[in-house]
Design a protein around this nucleic acid. Sequence first.
DNA 1: CGCTGCGCGTCAT
DNA 2: CGCGCAGCG
Length: 672
Amino acid sequence: MGITGLLPFLEKSSRKTNIKEFSGGTVAIDSYCWLHKGAFSCAEKLMMGETTNAYVVYCMKYINMLLKYKIKPILVFDGQRLPAKEQTEIKRRKARQLNRRKATDLIQMGQVTEGTNLLKRAIDITHEIALELIKQCQNENIDCIIAPYEADAQLAYLNISGIADVIITEDSDLILFGCKKIFFKMDLVGNGVLIAQDQLYLAMDVKSEQFEMDKFRHICILSGCDYLSSLPGIGLGKARKFIMKNTDQNIHKLTRISCKCKKKSMTIDLALQLALGNCDPATLKMVHDFNPDKIERKRKRDAGQTIIQTSIWSSKYKLKTKYVKLIDSTNKTKCQNSSPLSVLNSSFINGKELGKERKSLKNAYVSLNSHNSSNIQSDPEDHDLHNLAILDMYKSSRNAKLIDSTNKESEDYLNLTSNTSPDLLKQRNPFIKRVSDLSTSPSILSNGNYRKRGKNLMRIRRTLIDENTVIESKYFSKSDNKECNVLESENKDNETSWISTNYNTILDTDVYDATPKQLEKRLSITDTVQNANSTENINDPLLSNQNDCLTNIYRNVPEKSNLNDKIDDVSSMIHMTDRSYVTNNYLVSSNSNMEINDITNYENANCSQNDSFEWINTKNVQNFLHKRDTLKKRSSNRVRVVTKKKGLSQSKQSPTVPRQQSLLDMYGFQKR
DNA sequence: CGCTGCGCGTCAT
DNA sequence: CGCGCAGCG
């Protein structure tokens, strides 16, 4: 994340020492640091593509020093580029290119020393360069591991899991990743600075028992990171003051941070202005001056004539507590009954998403079935995550188009819902209705009565598919005829039927009984629809890249037959696929200018601070600007974004976050 | 006082 | 990537 000034900020938590303190132990090394320094000695050769092992020799000096102290080194290398950090990466690449151009110019002009100096800054450590060191180490029986993405997470895993006693790096981000002990600025004799997690409280000016890692993480993110351009005027110091004073975990309150900054003209949060519609998402220029506080006052004045609606922007806005409880209790019921539908709700959506690429159809099937055959869902927190994800998926599906076109039916549906969950309809804000009701699969909201759920869904569906085609819950599975019916209706009305396909898919209770072939058939139907809506997907290089990623990830997925033997393998993948909603959610919701709100809702939804949630929230915030850029790059055409949303999320986001989530799951961030 | 932006160094002789 | 410094509010 690149938190500027973090190391000086943590001076109180750090201690000068020598690495020999860890004699007899294991260290994990951020190899990039050594490679980058080592490459300085041979920058010209590397730039010219000449073969040189000078940097390998340099790195081996460190390794030999460690070996001398009887320390076991594990070298960790960077893997694939993190799509979420694309913007940062582009900046760096441009900087490197600029340096390279300047350098060649300078050398041509005769200023060789200045030229080579610049050239050194333009070095990019490629995998090819790293491979030479890897080979050398492997020859000498020194462990090397190439991380799936950035080495950071891998290093953190090695440290948190106890495999490595300490991490050697120059990157302060490792602290945020939850590492226990990190060794910075190590020189060739082993002197350096040690920062231990259990000392962080010292820099935070609190007692050790008051220290919370979450707050620390919030401080760092608030001060600015790679994923999000920083708020002007907010550094680590201000962020610390703000977070430590703020007992409310609600990130929404960040809008109040302006009180704590003395710069009047400062635009606190671009994201907020975007969300309010004041800022043109494409040009980022202020085009409007909507002030939710003013509306709030107006509402109070008009209270006699119109229904009071608590604005989603209002500090009084509350929604999620009851709502979450409801889901929670439903989940528990589901968990005990292990209703296939409850499981299906989440898994099939994810399965279908995966199914978009034909290559991974089988894998979608496997992940789907493993949900059924294992008790992965036993963690109640997971349920919340799943279900909120689904809610948000539906919200996005319906929000954009359906509400206007099928208003009457929507209301019908709401009434039906109110029978099963009256609490929800006490919220009169139509926006809330959309979030909690329209967007919600009734199967989640009802009290475990499967038939009721089915009925509700049928009602929705009838409004969407032509009236003559009343399809029972067995959707595709009963006969080929029905497939045709649905496809026909889809052709008639792309947008609505696309959504109906989603609902129907969820309704299909036969998925577990389906053979892989059947499933593939079904998935390919939705595939077709989506591809029809966004032919660009096919040509999207990012998507094809995604294909490769998925293939890689799933190459070890077991067949159904020996699934039970490999539950552990699959479970991490399930986590990963299940979490893909995170990306899906924020991409999708971008149409309705709801980013801030989504984040807030997540916060509201989960007052108890659990790591997984926090992390996801963070992710949402972090990816906000990235997503904005993505959308900016694509098109500002709303309809197009709507129809393409799956493709977007698949092609750009999914490879990152789900996998990271999966890693985090493996690293033990999930369960404490 | 604290935050931001910019330029510089990282090797090895 | 971090550091240190100048400049700014």
